[in-house]
Simulated assay, not measured.
Amino acid sequence: MGEVDIVRLLCLFFAVVMLIGHSVDAGAENPTREKCTCNLDPDDPPADGAWVKNASACWSTEVKDLNWCDIVVESLQGSQATQTTSMELFGNASNPPVLVDVLHSRFDNFLQVSAVEGGPIDLKQAADIVTSRLKENAALIANCVTALADRKRGFVEDGDGGVVCRVSEVSGWLRLEIPVEAARIVYMVAPGT
């Protein structure tokens, strides 16, 4: 084997290593799944839709039958609000009633923004349902926030009234889904830093 053949073989070897390394990194984090996104089929990679790339917490209203959703950003990446969101949630995971109060307060802020913009669901009825579902599922929410804090990707727990909380296997984001009428209200939070 000549010197030129050895150089070609080494170049081919490094090219294969680079391709394998690149494909592993690319599959590790799909930015369209379970972040601040309109994801009407959360168990499937969405073929279309939108997401907020620089958000770390948000609320969404999703109406699958209408193929409609909205996103209201609660905090952005790198902001002081991001640290406050994580600290408030993680710090109260062992106290479900206080954790529910924190989420209820954040939901009220979401309602104020959504009331101005409007949408396809009755927000007064949604507020009553979400408040009730948060209280009924306090233990589930605490378990889910603890899973997020402990970075337990793949955590999924079903609760009362159709509530589902999961920590994405792919992105590590928390996704709390609360059914309301023919829609669902979804709270999404980035993993803590």
Rank of each mutant, 00 (worst) to 15 (best):
C38F: 06
A81M: 09
Q77F: 00
D70T: 11
D25W: 10
D70A: 05
E34V: 07
Q80F: 00
T85E: 14
L19F: 08
P46N: 09
N39R: 01
P45V: 15
M87V: 06
T37I: 07
N92E: 12
D44L: 12
V72C: 03
C58S: 11
I20R: 02
A50C: 03
P31L: 12
C38R: 05
C11M: 08
L40N: 11
A93D: 04
I71D: 10
D44K: 08
D65K: 09
N54I: 08
S60W: 01
A93K: 06
D43H: 07
A93R: 07
F14N: 03
A28W: 03
W59Y: 10
C11H: 01
L12C: 05
D43G: 13
L40E: 14
D41W: 00
C11P: 00
R33T: 14
C36W: 02
E88K: 03
W59T: 04
E62G: 03
V72H: 04
N54Y: 01
G21A: 15
W59F: 14
F13C: 09
T61C: 07
N30Y: 10
T85M: 15
E29Y: 06
G27H: 09
E29K: 00
M87R: 06
Q80E: 11
P46F: 03
L40Q: 11
D41M: 07
D25S: 14
A26G: 06
K64W: 06
C38L: 15
L66F: 08
S86C: 13
S56P: 02
S79N: 06
D48Q: 04
E74Q: 12
F14G: 02
V73S: 06
V63G: 07
A93V: 03
W51P: 00
K64H: 12
N54F: 04
S60T: 15
P42G: 13
D44W: 01
D43Y: 06
Q83T: 12
W51L: 07
F90S: 12
A47L: 10
P42I: 14
P31T: 11
S60P: 04
M18I: 08
D70Y: 01
S60R: 09
S79M: 07
G91A: 07
F90G: 05
D44M: 11
W68M: 14
V73Y: 01
T32L: 10
N92T: 13
C58I: 09
S60C: 11
T82K: 02
P45Y: 08
C36D: 11
L66V: 08
V52Q: 11
V16I: 09
E34R: 09
N39V: 04
Q80P: 00
D43M: 09
T84I: 11
A55R: 01
S86A: 15
A28C: 06
I20D: 02
E74C: 05
